[in-house]
Design a protein around this nucleic acid. Structure first.
Lengths: 195, 195
DNA sequence: ATAGGGACATACGAAGCGTATGTCAATTGG
DNA sequence: CCAATTGACATACGCTTCGTATGTCCCTAT
């Protein structure tokens, strides 16, 4: 008759995460009122503190959800390509495209670091870096990419592409800026190839 | 007898900026109490609102001050080098070293974007990007760097180096991480050279 | 010399947040 | 099948902090 308790809890958590994600994306973390978005989920702050320990904990949960979604799409992009090199390119371009999303920019790229500290220390959010690292490694095994430290290279790339995405999205003319940035990113990736 | 008014005002602004800079660096923007650090400057929030319009305005002023200092050092680094290419390398390595500073990380790289929005839209804080852009352009004129869009390239580089600095500074073993990251950055810059 | 305005302080009201406490339902052991 | 207990959530309260409205004083210019 009644749903099992576990399921109810999972639903509660999911509702809170969804409501917070919406509020954080629209108004930003600091300007999001806990009473407002918990009420929107049909709950109160009591539930929030119980499950996530506070506002930062909820932000972490939201970011983890977003990161999981991003990583899923990244790996799908990479797999679809005809060659591994092409998949690598697609992966990075795909990352830029995702990072153009205002929701990702605000929550993951701006509020996240301010509240939770440097992203490279997050338990989540390194799924994407790991994905790129794996690609670099595989390309090295195939002799396509020069002998560089894979993880470091992956991090430099994500740093550059993350910046590029923000630059594009917040420029006066995103379309035009994109046309400048994407080729530059391709060229930068080409620089990794063994000569 | 009395100091001229202009001078008093400049002092007040400087004191507020200095006190805020200290508080923001130590506790972070959100946790810094306006009453506390204005009092530390021998003033009240009244002065703050009068001169900077609010907390975000003061943060912008602090960041502008930091950015000016950084740019000054960057250009000095570049000028000191024997060749222009070496100056370019020094400039970027110098940028990483500066970005290792916890004060810069917290105020400029984390709180700044969260409060003021994407850095590439700031009026200040692009002094560094302009400096790097100029270097890329000059190197192209000398035929050393390949034909790429200078500003875009400069932005990708700063994105990568900024990320690298945060990664280094927040890693368990910054010394070791630095030894991995710096060569990778050099290599990335080498990729720009005309073949 | 005296308006006038600008530089700051003070006082007040309104949110928003964290915690302490309360309640009810679901599980578990006998 | 029935308590006892745990845990999921709501309610209530106080504290902090922020923005603004108002007040005062001292330079400065004419």
């Amino acid at each position: 008759m009644h749903k099992p308790r576990q399921e109810m809890i999972a639903e509660t958590r999911a509702k809170l995460i969804a409501a917070a994600r919406k509020a954080f994306a629209e108004k930003g973390y600091a300007e999001s009122n806990m009473d407002d978005f918990t009420a929107e989920a049909g709950l109160t702050r009591g539930a929030l503190y119980h499950h996530f320990g506070g506002k930062p904990g909820l932000l972490a949960a939201v970011i983890e959800q977003i990161d999981t979604e991003m990583n899923g799409r990244l790996q799908a992009d990479a797999r679809k390509a005809p060659t591994r090199w092409q998949g690598f390119i697609d992966e990075n371009i795909g990352y830029i495209e995702m990072a153009l999303d205002p929701e990702i920019q605000r929550i993951v790229l701006r509020d996240g670091p301010a509240v939770l500290g440097d992203p490279s220390t997050w338990p989540s959010a390194n799924a994407c870096v790991r994905s790129i690292t794996a690609s670099v490694k595989a390309l090295q095994d195939e002799g396509i990419v020069a002998d560089v430290d894979p993880e470091t290279t992956a991090r430099l790339i994500t740093g550059a592409t993350t910046y590029a995405a923000q630059w594009i999205a917040n420029s006066d003319d995103p379309e035009a800026t994109s046309k400048r940035a994407i080729p530059a990113v391709r060229q930068m990736l080409e620089g990794l190839r063994r000569k």
